[in-house]
Amino acid sequence: MTNEDPRIVCFSCNFAFCGRQSPAPPNVNVTRVQCIGRLDPVSILETFEKGADAVMLAGCKPPDCHFQEGNVHAELTFKILKRLLKLSGLEPERLELVWASPFEDQDLNHYIIRFAAKITKLPSSPLKRADAESSYTVNVIAAKNAASQFRMRVLLGREKELTESVNTYGEKIPEKDYDAMLEEIVGGEFIRYKIHFLTRNVPMSVKDLAEATGLDRNEVLDHVVDMRRKNMLAVDHIEGATPLYKALEV
């Protein structure tokens, strides 16, 4: 299935294309931000939620960031967003990061057209047609919540500090370990917020949740225990021998 008229959102860095930008095609919305590192992962997920088929981030090729380190942050944001998109059941190809050198000749449109050609091969975003209860909506909301979660954001913010210099305990975390840690946290938080969202109106048992999330029951139980400890979830009532859980306000 192809999509002839995809809605594409392009976030472009204010400094990467010095006036090299001819008018974009009508289906592409170009939004300029001061720095591509300024984009909050939550904002990008929200553009997907609001019906964008694809999002392109265009920034300055390292090491030419006007703000010195903005592109490093953009790269990190991009990495976890890919992961969250995958978890949400959206094709990770819907998000792309392109680097442009501020003094090269390529027009921004060149990158947009190349990206749009790829996107037309994908079906239109399922989020466009999704209602509030559809699994895509649930997923993207869970992803958004995960992305605004404290633990993950601290880890993102301190990436440089953790991998390049030593932490409070005098340890230096190798980049591989850091990536693994980030992966685990992103995955875990996503599931937890998904459970939280699913049980917000209706109390559900571990069995129901395992079916809804497609995970192993033990794994779900682990998360449920975790969430109870964090006051995200509480037992609503017990049906027979099965406890039913309901989300608490966070």
């Binding site: 919305n29 931000v33 992962p41 904002s43 964008a52 006007h66 703000f67 942050h73 954001r153």
Partner: peptide, 27 residues
């Protein structure tokens, strides 16, 4: 540049003009 706003764990920092909401609205 707004990098602090993008990274603030509690989303306590916003930009004066280009808030997250405005970015999403424009985009």
């Amino acid at each position: 540049c707004g990098i602090c706003a993008a990274r603030c764990p509690e989303q306590a920092i916003t930009m004066e003009k280009m808030t997250n909401d405005r970015i999403i609205l424009l985009a």
